[in-house]
Nucleic acid binder design. Structure first.
Lengths: 247, 247
DNA sequence: CGATTTATTGAATCGACTCAATTGATGTGG
DNA sequence: CCACATCAATTGAGTCGATTCAATAAATCG
C-alpha cells in the first residue's frame, strides 16, 4: 500500500509483472523505520549500510559548510530512494534529513542482488530512476548557475509538482507542500528574505497559490514558461511500455 | 595505452586482474572516434546509442537556454565516461561537447552486458565511478548555491587538479589546463569579467599560477582551504584494495 | 603577418543580501 | 481552551557582490 508511489513511478518506464510488484511490496514492508520531522536519517561521515526508500513523507539531501551555510541538494518524495549501491562507499559525503515525519524502508545489498538476478524489469526501471536522478541533479546545477531567482523558484516548483504527479501524489491542481521558505532558500541558494519576495512575485503573477502547506498551480504551462522549464530531463515519455511483462 | 587513465582511476577502488585490464583495453581500442576542439559529440535531443569513454582530451556536458545562457554541468577528463546505461533513455537531455581535440571510445550495451556477466570487479568499479560522478554533481550544486566566487573558483580548480591526479595526468604541482575563462564562467555561473577578476585574486593570494594553458598549484592544502574543499566526495580513500583479484 | 580569439581594465548598475523589526501562524502545557 | 512560546512569514532600508557595457591589450592561429 505504502509502496504505491514507487510502483507507480517505475511503471512510467516499464510495465511490471505481478511478481515484480510482489517483491517490491515485500521489500517495502520489511525493515521499516519512522522518523520525526526535522530529524537526520543518516549523516555525513556515517557508513552507509542500506539503500533508503521513502515510503511516506518528504526528506532531503543536504550538506553544510563549517560556517553554517547549508545547501539542500535534492528532495526525496514518497517513492524516491537514495543512491543505488551506496553501501559500496566507505562513508556518506552528505546527510539525509527529514522535512516532515517520514517512514522509510531499508533495502539491503541482498535485495538488490536478488533484483539483479531475477527481476530484469525492475533492474531496468531502477537504472532509469538512477539516470533521472542524475539528470535532476544536473538540472539543479543549471538552475543555480543560470536562472534568476524568479525563474529558479518557478522551475523548482514545477519540478516538485511534476514529480509528485508521477508518484500519483497530487490532486488535480493541488499538492501537499510542506517546505518552509527556509527550506526553499537552502535549495535555491537564495536568502530567506529573497525567497519570500520571489514567492510574492510568483503569486502576484498568478502563477502559484501557496499557503497552509498546500501548493496550487493554476496553469502548469504558464509556470513552466516562467521557469524556462523543459521536462525532457525527467524522461517521462515512455508510457510504461518500454518492456513488457509476459510472465 | 590510451586507456591508462581509466584503469588507473578504477584501480583507486578495486585491484584489477590482468583479464580485467585486457577487456578494458580491448573495449577502448575498438570503435574509436576523434573530434576537433569545440565540437559536439552528442547533442540534446539526440538518441543516445553508446556510452562514451574519453581516451584523451577534455570535454564537458552542457545545456543551453533559448536565450543563450549556457551552463557547463561537468567536465570530462581522460578516463571519464558518460552515464552508464544512457542508452536506455530515449533522448539526451543535455549535450556533450569537446574543449580540446578529443578521442573517445564508444562502448556498446553488449560490452556492459559482458562486464555484468563476467567481470565483477570492473562492474563494482564502474558503480563506484557512477556514485562518485553523482557526488561531484551534488558538490557543484553546493558550489553554485553556497560558495562565493572566490571560494567557488578555488574549489573547482582543486577538484580538477585532484581528478587529473587520480587519472595519473598531472606532473607534480603542474597540470595541463585547457579551459578558457569563458569555460570557467559557464561552469561557475559567473560572468567572464568576474572570472577574470577572481582568478586575479587567486593569483594575488599566491594560490595558483595559471597561464599558457598550464595550472600550477603551489600548495594544494592552501587552495583547498580557500575553496572550503573537503575531498570526501571523491571517495578516494580505498587504496585499490577493496576487492582482490585472485584470478 | 594580420585576423581572431582570449584576457584585462574601468565605470556604472542591479539583483540579491544583510540587518532589524514586526506580524502572523502553530503548537504545547497548564 | 486559552496563554504563552516558538517558529514561519513579511516588510523596510541600506549595502555589497557580481553584472553589463565598452574599450583595450595580449595571445594564438592560419
Amino acid at each position: 500500500m505504502t509502496v504505491t508511489p514507487l510502483i507507480r513511478k517505475l511503471e512510467q518506464f516499464v510495465r511490471l509483472s505481478p511478481g515484480d510488484r510482489t517483491i517490491l511490496t515485500r521489500a517495502s514492508s520489511e525493515r521499516v523505520r519512522k522518523f520525526a520531522a526535522r530529524a537526520d536519517i543518516i549523516r555525513e561521515g556515517d557508513q552507509p549500510k542500506d539503500v533508503h526508500l521513502i515510503l511516506s513523507g518528504w526528506a532531503c539531501r543536504y550538506k553544510q559548510l563549517e560556517d553554517g551555510r547549508r545547501q539542500v541538494m535534492s528532495f526525496f518524495l514518497p517513492g524516491d530512494m537514495c543512491d543505488l549501491n551506496v553501501f559500496i562507499l566507505k562513508e556518506m559525503d552528505h546527510s539525509i534529513g527529514t522535512i516532515t515525519a517520514v517512514a522509510i524502508a531499508d533495502l539491503s545489498r541482498d535485495f538488490f542482488d536478488e533484483i539483479g538476478a531475477g527481476y530484469p524489469r525492475i533492474a531496468t526501471a531502477l537504472w532509469w530512476e538512477t539516470l533521472v536522478n542524475a539528470a535532476i541533479q544536473r538540472e539543479w546545477t543549471m538552475n543555480l548557475g543560470q536562472r534568476t531567482a524568479f525563474e529558479r523558484m518557478a522551475h523548482l516548483l514545477c519540478e516538485i509538482f511534476l514529480r509528485l504527479r508521477l508518484a500519483g501524489l497530487n490532486d488535480g491542481l493541488d499538492c501537499q507542500f510542506p517546505l518552509t521558505q527556509a527550506d526553499l532558500a537552502d535549495a535555491t541558494g537564495l536568502s530567506k528574505v529573497h525567497v519570500n519576495r520571489t514567492l510574492q512575485e510568483l503569486r502576484a503573477a498568478g502563477l502559484v497559490v501557496l499557503n497552509r502547506k498546500t501548493l496550487n498551480v493554476p496553469s502548469l504551462e504558464r509556470l513552466m514558461n516562467a521557469g524556462l522549464f523543459n521536462a525532457n530531463y525527467l524522461h517521462m515519455n515512455h508510457e510504461g511500455s518500454q518492456l513488457d511483462a509476459n510472465e
